[in-house]
């Protein structure tokens, strides 16, 4: 199947990548990303996120399969892709010995443009680090480095922006601000492909692909993923949290149970046990101040359930 240019921002068919000796980074991946959205690839370290991005940015070749980015083939038309894609790798990859301004000018000139030409696009981000424009990039704090890297990835006005774990190691307040920047860029018409290991960022994406062990567990909107979750989930609290976990795990009716913030999420399939039965069981085991509520699953609940299914299938 060939894809019309422009129909999808990214299209992957049966992409496979193995690193020697036998590490299967990507196993037969299929992916279609429509333009003008924030698309999140969500999964832990080692799931295959960076490998996928490096194939799409034409930095490495897949062993098998076909991929197009903005309609261009990643192998035969890699030069076109590099013109229109902005890439912010996970590791800081700017020139540490150049100043903030020099880095930005350098990236602009590499792409045959000037800082002035596309200043509008980056001004809200770059303005925050402009007071330090004469400082060497290596001397910047983590948050400032991130803003400079984003400015450099945007300076040629890409159609597609690919960001590899931009918020890893970033505190919750700065993470929220970063996502606001991404939302603004989307409104400027840029398609955004972003990876993260933080499950709570899933809700900020239009579409998400959950990835684990080189395979997608699910690709859909966060809302649909949550709605398709079949088991019931109860949020349970009591006065003895550690014992609560071990007691609940003894119940054969409970398919899984894990700590979630200040409570424990209990997954029950086919309504094997009701709220009242759970309550009685906990009372019998000496728990007090018991609170049980049936809740909507989070994306993290879905990820854990789907990863369990993946393990069973393999």
């Amino acid at each position: 199947m060939t894809v019309n240019k422009g129909e999808f921002a990214v299209c992957c068919e049966n992409i496979t990548k193995t690193y020697p000796p036998d590490i299967q980074a990507l196993k037969n991946i299929n992916l279609k990303i429509s333009p003008h959205q924030i698309f999140g690839i969500i999964g832990p370290d080692g799931a295959g996120k960076t490998t996928l991005f490096r194939i799409l940015t034409t930095l490495i070749l897949a062993d098998e399969g076909k991929a197009t980015v903005l309609g261009y083939d990643v192998v035969n038309e890699y030069q076109e892709i590099r013109k229109y894609v902005g890439y912010m790798p996970g590791r800081f990859s700017l020139y540490q010995d150049l100043t903030v301004e020099e880095n930005l000018k350098f990236f602009a000139s590499v792409f045959g443009t000037t800082v002035e030409e596309n200043y509008d696009l980056i001004k809200n981000i770059y303005r925050q680090i402009e007071p330090f424009k004469n400082r060497r990039a290596g001397q910047l704090s983590g948050g400032m480095k991130q803003k400079l890297a984003l400015s450099c990835a945007l300076i040629h006005k890409p159609k597609l922006l690919i960001l590899d774990e931009p918020t890893t190691g970033v505190d919750p307040v700065s993470r929220r601000e970063f996502w606001e920047m991404l939302q603004n860029l989307k409104n400027e018409g840029i398609t955004i492909l972003v990876s993260t290991a933080y499950m709570d960022e899933a809700g900020l994406c239009d579409t998400i692909a959950l990835i684990l062990n080189g395979e997608f567990l699910k690709i859909d909107t966060p809302k649909n993923i949550v709605q398709q979750f079949e088991p019931e989930i109860f949020s349970v609290q009591s006065n003895q949290r550690s014992k609560l976990l071990t007691d609940l795990r003894r119940l054969p009716e409970v398919s899984s149970c894990y700590a979630f913030g200040d409570s424990i999420h209990v997954t029950v399939e086919n309504k094997k046990i009701s709220e009242e039965e759970l309550q009685n069981f906990l009372l019998k085991n000496g728990h007090e101040q018991i609170e049980i509520a049936k809740i909507e699953p989070t994306v993290e609940d879905c990820f854990m359930e789907l990863s369990k299914q993946q393990e069973e299938n393999n």
Binding site: A47, T168, M199, Y258, A259, E300, M304, S307, K308
Partner: peptide
Amino acid sequence: DEPTGGVDPVTRRQFWEMIYEAAD
């Protein structure tokens, strides 16, 4: 120091259960 960054959700929780055991 940020022991669980980038770990999958199940492993992250298993890690915390190890922390509880150590504290106990």
